[in-house]
Simulated assay, not measured.
Amino acid sequence: MKKLSFQRARGGLISRSTLIGIGAGVVVLIFVILRAAAPDAFFFLASPFLNFGSFATNELHIGLSSLESSRSLIEERDRLRTEVDALTNENRRLSSELAVRTVLLGNRAAGVGVIAGVVARPPITPYDILLLAKGNADGVAQGAFVTASGGIPVGIIESASAHSSRVSLFSLSGHASVAWIGTGKVPVTLIGEGAGTFAAELPKDAKIVVGDTVFIAPGGVPFGTVLRIDTNPSSPSEQVRIQPFVNPFTLTEVLVLPENSL
């Protein structure tokens, strides 16, 4: 009984499939006959389907073009962001260099000299000697003056190679520098005593007092102050101890100026 029912159901299913196939064939046959007998009517009836196909194709093309355009815009945005970041970093570097140059130049004209980093100082180097990370290839020449913050001279380029140079500080033991002391600009010779210290000998009637400003040549730039005055009753002169404004052993950057620029 069950087997018979299954066969009947199967027969009914085949009949429905057959009917669907026959119906589809009839529709196709009608369209073929209609196209042959009345092409205008055929295209009139088929135009909605054809127009929909064209519309769908066009929309797909627009969508793909829009997607490609969006991808290009994203790539362009990322490229511009990278360029902006690079320019921002370069601007920060230039601003930092300008700030350092302004401090080192003091009241001198901008664009003069070479900023050099101090790569070695005592006790790595001999006392009163600095090594700089700039040399002949960077515009640093033997005999050039070396200044610290405010344009205060601290030494002279003793020697230079292509990319490094050696600074002999004015405080080098035995080095003599022309200077003036006090509001009366009393001329004096500063003698380096090593380790960044100076001394000078003046007559007692020079009327120098502790706290007077010391100006150094060339340029007469304020260099330091009178720290102490040592006197000896049996001597007509007095020993003046000088405290420089700049501690050369804490310098990280200096400005190297041409010999005739001070």
Results as ranks from 00 to 15, higher is better:
residue 2 K to A: 15
residue 4 L to G: 00
residue 11 G to A: 14
residue 23 G to M: 09
residue 23 G to R: 02
residue 24 A to Q: 05
residue 24 A to E: 08
residue 25 G to E: 03
residue 25 G to T: 05
residue 28 V to S: 06
residue 32 V to C: 14
residue 35 R to F: 10
residue 37 A to I: 05
residue 41 A to D: 03
residue 41 A to E: 07
residue 41 A to Q: 08
residue 49 F to S: 09
residue 50 L to Q: 01
residue 53 G to V: 12
residue 55 F to M: 13
residue 61 H to V: 14
residue 62 I to L: 15
residue 64 L to Y: 11
residue 65 S to V: 07
residue 69 S to W: 06
residue 74 I to A: 09
residue 76 E to S: 14
residue 76 E to P: 02
residue 76 E to C: 01
residue 79 R to Q: 14
residue 82 T to S: 15
residue 87 L to A: 05
residue 92 R to N: 13
residue 94 L to F: 09
residue 95 S to W: 06
residue 98 L to M: 12
residue 99 A to G: 07
residue 100 V to S: 06
residue 103 V to Y: 08
residue 106 G to M: 10
residue 106 G to W: 08
residue 107 N to S: 12
residue 109 A to N: 10
residue 113 G to D: 03
residue 116 A to F: 06
residue 117 G to Y: 07
residue 127 Y to Q: 12
residue 129 I to H: 03
residue 137 A to D: 15
residue 140 V to H: 02
residue 143 G to H: 00
residue 143 G to S: 00
residue 151 G to E: 02
residue 152 I to F: 04
residue 159 S to Y: 07
residue 160 A to Y: 03
residue 160 A to C: 09
residue 164 S to I: 00
residue 165 S to C: 07
residue 168 S to R: 15
residue 173 S to N: 15
residue 178 V to W: 04
residue 181 I to Q: 05
residue 182 G to M: 12
residue 183 T to G: 13
residue 191 I to Q: 08
residue 199 A to T: 10
residue 204 K to C: 02
residue 205 D to W: 00
residue 205 D to S: 10
residue 208 I to L: 03
residue 209 V to A: 13
residue 209 V to K: 10
residue 212 D to C: 01
residue 218 P to F: 06
residue 222 P to T: 06
residue 226 V to D: 01
residue 227 L to V: 03
residue 231 T to L: 04
residue 232 N to D: 13
residue 245 F to L: 13
residue 246 V to H: 02
residue 247 N to T: 06
residue 251 L to Y: 04
residue 252 T to S: 12
residue 253 E to V: 11
